[in-house]
């Protein structure tokens, strides 16, 4: 049962980290342009490798 003392906080922290990541992603606008993100994968960079 002492294992619970570790496992429960760990479970809660992981859940909270997931939630925090979701809220951060929303705030930084990553859900603002879902269709654009799908298209951007296809953009080829035509710039030369100059560096």
């Amino acid at each position: 049962m002492t294992g619970l003392a570790f496992l429960i906080p760990i479970a809660l922290l992981m859940g909270a980290a997931g939630l925090a990541a979701f809220l951060w992603a929303m705030r930084s606008g990553q859900f603002d342009d879902m269709d654009g993100a799908a298209h951007r994968v296809l953009i080829d960079d035509e710039e030369d490798e100059d560096a």
Binding site: D32, D33, G36, H39
Partner: peptide, 8 residues
């Protein structure tokens, strides 16, 4: 700079 929002 220019930034496109494709959905909108």
């Amino acid at each position: 700079a220019a930034r496109v929002n494709f959905s909108a």
